Amino acid sequence: MDFDFTDDQEQLRDAVRKWVDKGYGFERRRGIVKEGGFSRAAYGELAELGLTGLYIGEDDGGLGMGPVEGMVVMEELGRGIVLEPLAQALIAGGVLSGYAPQALKAAWLPGIAGGEKLVVLAWQERKARYRLDVCEAQATQVQAGWTLNAIKSIVPAGDQADAFLVPATVGGKIALFLVERGAAGVATRGYGTQDGSRAAELSLKDAPASLVTLDGLAALEHAVDIGIAAACAEAVGVLDKTLAITVEYMNQRKQFGVTIASFQALRHRVADMKMQLELARSMSYYASLKLNAPADERRRALARAKYQLGNSMRFVGQQAVQLHGGIGVTDEYIVSHYFKKLTQLEMTFGDTLHHLGEVSQRMQDTAGVFA
C-alpha cells in the first residue's frame, strides 16, 4: 500500500507549516489567550489559505478536498497548537454538504468556505457522557418552521460563532438543525478552556431554527467522526512537536557534567515516546482513510483510532513533563502548553475510556483492525 502523499498534499502541508512558523508564534498565541482564546484575524488568515473550505465543493466556493488533506492540515496546526477551531469548519462543511437541503447550502456554505461565517457543532449535554443518542433538546414544528429548546455545553468558540449545528429530538428521534447566534431566544456564556482556547454554554429558548435533516443521528455521528479524525491528526502534530521539544531540552540540560540525553534510562523513555507517536500516527492515517467508509465500518474505525490516540497522548504528555522536571509545568515554558493541549484533546469527542467501550460494543467475530 502506498502511503506517500501527492505533490498537492505536500504543497498544502508546506503552506500551512509556513503560516504556523511565521504567523502564529508562541507570543502571538499567548496574546490570543489573554484576549479570550479566539482571534477572528487568525481565523481569517486560515480562510485566506483556503482551509475553511477544505471539505466544501468548488461550486460553493470551497476547495473540494478530502480527509487526507484535512489530516495534513490538522497535523500542521497541531504543531503550532493553534487555538482557532478549524475542525469546526471541516465539520460544518462536511455535514451541510452531505445532509442539508439546497437552500441551506446556498445560504451558508460560501460564507463558511470564505471564513466570513463560523458554524460550530453544539452537541454535548450534561447527562449524555459523550453518547450521541442521548439528547434532551426538543424541537417543535411551528407555522414559520421550527423552534428549539436546549442547553448545550462546551461549544467551541460558542460566543464568537455565527451559527450552531444543534441536534434535537423530534417525535422521539434526533434531527439536526442550524440555529443562528443572533436569533431570538439564543444566549451564550463564554469562558476559557484548559488549553487556552474558547468555549461557551449555549441556551436556546424557543429559538427559531432551520432543519438540516430529520436523519439527525446519522448526521451527528458523521459530524463527530469528522471531528475525531481532525482531533487525531491534530494530536499527531502536537505529539511530534512535544517529542522534538523534549529531545532538544535533553540535549541541552546537564547533570554531573554531561547532557541528560546521554543517560541510558532516559533514552529508553524517549524511545517509548517515539513508539507511541508512531502508533498514534498510523491510527490517525487509519481514521482518515476510513472517514468515507460505510457508517458502521467508519464508526468502528474512528473509535479504535481515538482510543489509541488517547493512550499515546497521555503517555507522551506525561513523559515530556517528567523529563523536563519542574520547568515542564510552568506557564512560561512552551511544553506545558503542549501538555495542556494533549490533555484536552484526549477528552475531545469522547475520552479514552468511552471509546474503549465503543470498540468493545462494536467488536465482531474478529478484533483485527482491518476486519
Results as ranks from 00 to 15, higher is better:
residue 4 D to P: 00
residue 8 D to V: 09
residue 11 Q to D: 15
residue 19 W to Y: 15
residue 22 K to T: 15
residue 26 F to C: 00
residue 29 R to I: 01
residue 37 G to R: 06
residue 40 R to L: 08
residue 43 Y to E: 02
residue 45 E to F: 00
residue 48 E to I: 00
residue 50 G to M: 01
residue 57 G to F: 00
residue 61 G to A: 08
residue 67 P to S: 12
residue 69 E to W: 09
residue 73 V to D: 06
residue 74 M to N: 05
residue 74 M to C: 09
residue 83 L to V: 13
residue 85 P to M: 07
residue 90 L to G: 00
residue 93 G to Q: 02
residue 93 G to S: 03
residue 102 Q to F: 09
residue 103 A to V: 08
residue 105 K to S: 08
residue 106 A to Y: 00
residue 107 A to E: 15
residue 107 A to Y: 00
residue 108 W to V: 09
residue 112 I to A: 10
residue 113 A to G: 14
residue 121 L to T: 11
residue 122 A to C: 09
residue 126 R to P: 02
residue 130 Y to S: 14
residue 136 E to A: 10
residue 138 Q to A: 12
residue 140 T to P: 00
residue 140 T to V: 10
residue 145 G to A: 06
residue 147 T to S: 07
residue 148 L to T: 01
residue 151 I to P: 01
residue 154 I to V: 11
residue 155 V to A: 02
residue 158 G to M: 03
residue 160 Q to T: 03
residue 161 A to Y: 02
residue 161 A to Q: 03
residue 162 D to Y: 02
residue 167 P to F: 02
residue 167 P to M: 04
residue 167 P to V: 03
residue 168 A to K: 01
residue 172 G to Y: 00
residue 175 A to G: 05
residue 177 F to V: 01
residue 180 E to S: 12
residue 180 E to N: 06
residue 183 A to T: 10
residue 184 A to V: 14
residue 186 V to I: 11
residue 187 A to P: 01
residue 190 G to D: 10
residue 191 Y to H: 15
residue 192 G to T: 14
residue 192 G to M: 12
residue 198 R to Y: 02
residue 198 R to C: 13
residue 199 A to N: 11
residue 200 A to D: 02
residue 204 L to I: 03
residue 211 L to R: 03
residue 213 T to M: 03
residue 214 L to K: 10
residue 215 D to E: 15
residue 216 G to L: 04
residue 216 G to S: 06
residue 218 A to Q: 13
residue 219 A to G: 07
residue 221 E to G: 05
residue 223 A to I: 11
residue 225 D to S: 13
residue 226 I to Y: 06
residue 227 G to F: 08
residue 229 A to Y: 09
residue 231 A to E: 07
residue 232 C to D: 11
residue 232 C to M: 08
residue 235 A to W: 06
residue 236 V to K: 04
residue 238 V to L: 06
residue 239 L to C: 07
residue 240 D to A: 14
residue 241 K to F: 06
residue 246 T to V: 07
residue 248 E to M: 12
residue 250 M to N: 04
residue 251 N to L: 13
residue 252 Q to M: 12
residue 254 K to V: 14
residue 260 I to H: 12
residue 262 S to P: 07
residue 263 F to H: 15
residue 266 L to V: 08
residue 268 H to A: 14
residue 269 R to V: 13
residue 271 A to S: 11
residue 272 D to R: 14
residue 273 M to C: 07
residue 275 M to C: 07
residue 281 R to E: 13
residue 283 M to E: 12
residue 284 S to T: 14
residue 286 Y to Q: 08
residue 292 N to G: 11
residue 293 A to Q: 07
residue 294 P to Q: 08
residue 295 A to S: 14
residue 297 E to P: 00
residue 297 E to A: 12
residue 298 R to W: 06
residue 299 R to H: 15
residue 302 L to V: 10
residue 308 Q to T: 10
residue 308 Q to F: 04
residue 310 G to Y: 05
residue 312 S to F: 02
residue 314 R to V: 04
residue 316 V to W: 03
residue 322 Q to R: 12
residue 323 L to A: 05
residue 328 G to H: 06
residue 335 V to W: 02
residue 336 S to E: 08
residue 338 Y to D: 04
residue 339 F to T: 03
residue 340 K to M: 05
residue 346 E to N: 11
residue 353 L to S: 13
residue 354 H to R: 02
residue 355 H to R: 01
residue 357 G to P: 00
residue 358 E to L: 12
residue 360 S to L: 12
residue 361 Q to V: 05
residue 363 M to P: 00
residue 364 Q to N: 07
residue 364 Q to W: 04
residue 364 Q to D: 09
residue 369 V to F: 05
